[in-house]
Deep mutational scan, measured.
Amino acid sequence: MTEYKLVVVGAGGVGKSALTIQLIQNHFVDEYDPTIEDSYRKQVVIDGETCLLDILDTAGQEEYSAMRDQYMRTGEGFLCVFAINNTKSFEDIHHYREQIKRVKDSEDVPMVLVGNKCDLPSRTVDTKQAQDLARSYGIPFIETSAKTRQGVDDAFYTLVREIRKHKEKMSKDGKKKKKKSKTKCVIM
């Protein structure tokens, strides 16, 4: 069974824990209790493949930012979460993405942009803004509501699919490099 290491990042209060708990335990946590770091595991079937999701729910508070490099190193894919009623959390996505790329030393890291709290009427981040940002990053965008469960499975499952595509691409690139290195030079 394939294991996928997913990391949920975003500013404090955007609903990272609520999304994760909704996926794992099928219930909505409405009281806000700032996370330092929590880890969850769940076995699911995605596109006919049974897999184990190892999900790291991270601290959004700035005082825990020193811990970010460590979990970013171990993560295979990242859910970059903002709240649709919090423009600052949307603007912060850029910083999370840049930090992930720096730590992973790669421009090509599996990510999904997630606009959470889409059940709320007080939207300050337009869907088109988020779609445009995701398009500019070359990553999928999904709106979710941890409260109603809308888009929750889709967000995590899409990230797994992005990781699969990335692994497939990397193995193809690896095979191309191996083929090239088999060419021999004969000096007579």
Rank of each mutant, 00 (worst) to 15 (best):
T2G: 12
T2R: 10
E3T: 11
E3K: 12
K5R: 08
L6F: 08
A11S: 05
G13H: 03
V14E: 04
K16N: 03
S17V: 00
A18P: 03
L19W: 03
T20N: 12
T20S: 12
Q22F: 02
L23C: 11
Q25D: 05
Q25I: 01
Q25G: 08
H27I: 05
F28Q: 07
V29N: 11
E31C: 07
E31S: 09
P34L: 08
T35Q: 07
I36Q: 13
D38V: 06
S39R: 10
Y40G: 13
Y40S: 11
R41G: 10
R41A: 08
R41K: 11
K42P: 08
Q43N: 09
V45H: 09
V45C: 11
V45F: 08
I46S: 06
E49Y: 02
D54L: 02
D54F: 01
D57E: 12
D57G: 08
T58W: 05
T58G: 12
A59C: 09
G60S: 08
G60H: 09
Q61D: 12
E62N: 08
E63R: 05
Y64S: 14
Y64M: 11
A66K: 06
A66W: 04
R68G: 11
R68E: 15
D69M: 02
D69Y: 02
Q70N: 10
Y71L: 08
Y71R: 08
M72Q: 06
M72G: 10
M72T: 08
M72R: 04
T74C: 11
G77T: 00
G77P: 00
F78I: 10
L79D: 00
L79G: 00
L79K: 00
C80L: 14
F82D: 00
I84L: 15
I84W: 12
I84N: 15
I84E: 15
N86H: 07
T87E: 15
K88T: 08
F90I: 14
E91M: 02
D92C: 04
H94V: 13
H94P: 02
H95Q: 12
H95I: 10
Y96H: 11
Q99C: 08
I100L: 06
K101I: 05
R102C: 02
R102F: 06
K104H: 08
D105H: 07
D105M: 03
E107R: 05
D108N: 09
D108G: 06
V109C: 05
M111V: 04
V112F: 02
G115H: 03
N116C: 15
K117Q: 10
K117V: 14
C118T: 08
C118M: 07
D119K: 02
D119T: 01
L120M: 11
P121F: 09
P121I: 08
R123W: 10
T124Q: 11
T124D: 14
V125C: 12
D126E: 12
D126L: 07
D126K: 05
T127L: 14
Q129K: 07
Q131L: 10
D132Y: 06
D132W: 03
D132G: 07
L133M: 13
L133V: 08
L133H: 02
A134M: 03
A134W: 04
Y137G: 03
I139W: 04
F141R: 02
E143C: 06
E143S: 14
E143A: 04
T144R: 10
S145E: 03
A146S: 09
K147M: 14
T148S: 11
T148M: 14
R149E: 14
G151L: 04
D153E: 15
D153V: 14
D154R: 09
F156A: 03
Y157R: 12
Y157M: 15
R161I: 09
E162A: 06
E162H: 03
I163N: 04
R164P: 01
R164C: 04
H166D: 04
H166A: 05
H166N: 12
H166G: 05
E168K: 13
E168S: 09
E168W: 08
M170G: 06
D173Y: 04
G174D: 13
G174Y: 01
K175E: 07
K177C: 12
K178H: 09
K178G: 13
K178T: 11
K179L: 14
K180C: 09
K180D: 15
K180F: 03
S181D: 15
K182H: 14
K184C: 02
C185Q: 15
C185I: 01
C185R: 15
C185Y: 08
V186K: 08
V186W: 04
V186C: 06
